[in-house]
Amino acid sequence: MASEYKRYARALWLLAMLCACCALSGCRRNTAGGVNVMGSTSIQPFAEVLADEFNSRHPSSRIDVQGGGSTMGIQSVTNNLAQIAMCSRELKSSESRYLKPIIIALDGMAVVVHKDNTVSNLTREQVREMFVGNITNWSQVGGEDRPIRLITREEGSGTREAFAKLVMNNQRVSRKALTQESNGAVKELVRGDRAAIGYMSLGLVNDEAKIVNIEGIVPSTDNVRNGSYPLVRPFLFVVRMGAVLSPAAKEFLEFVLSPQGQHLLVEEGLVSVL
C-alpha cells in the first residue's frame, strides 16, 4: 500500500536530515564582508547605534554586534570568532600581552539614591564605608533614620571593577549587598526603594532616580571630561595585536573614533574621547 512506502520515505527523509546536520557541521561559515563585534553588554547598545549608522553609510559591509560579556568577547577575538571585542573592564595583564585596547568613549559612574532621599552629597569615604558595611543607617550621613540597602553589580562586571578601584580601594563589598546584573536593574530597584543606594552608568540615569554629588562635584558630562569628577571608566574596543583587520573592520574603527561616530556616542550620554 502507498502508506507503506510513505513510511519508508519518512524514515529515509529522517536519515537524510541527520546526514544534512552532520554535513552542515562540516562546512565553515563564510565571513566575507561581515565583521563580528562581541562582548560587554553595557557597551552593546552603544555599539549597535554605531553599527546601524555605519551599515547605512556602507551598504556593502556588515557589522554584527553581539553581546555575551567582556570575557566572551575577548575569548572570541582570541579564537578568531570576532574581529573586535567590546570590554567594559580593564584588560588583565595576561590579556594585554596579545591584545590591543582602544578607548572609544568615557563613561561617568553615578551614585544613585531614591528620588525622595534627603541626602544629596556624599564623600568617597562615606560611600566606601556604606558599601563596606560600617555605615548602616542613612541618619549617619545626614539623612532620615532608615537602614541603608546596598545595591552592587556582579563580580567581574566593568562597572563594579571601576567602582572597586575608584571608591572601594579594593576593600570587599559587604556580603549583605544586593547584586544586580544590569544598569536597568539597579535603576529599577533604586526607583522603588527609599532605603537603596547603588551605582550605575551616568548616561543611563533619568529623572526616576536621584544622582548624588561626590565630594561636592556634580557628575555632569563636563566634569567627567575635565577630570574633576572622580568616578570615570573607559569603554574599550579590543583587537588582537598584529592581527590583519578586514577593510570593513578598519573603516568601522575609524568611524567610531571620527567626529561623527563620537557625536553619536555623546548623543547617547557617553563622554567623547576627542
Binding site: T41, S42, Q44, P45, G67, E181, S182, N183, G184, A185, K187, E188, L204
Partner: peptide, 8 residues
C-alpha cells in the same frame, strides 16, 4: 531582555 534590563 535587552530592552527591559538595560533600561533602553
Amino acid at each position: 531582555f535587552t530592552l527591559s534590563r538595560e533600561g533602553i
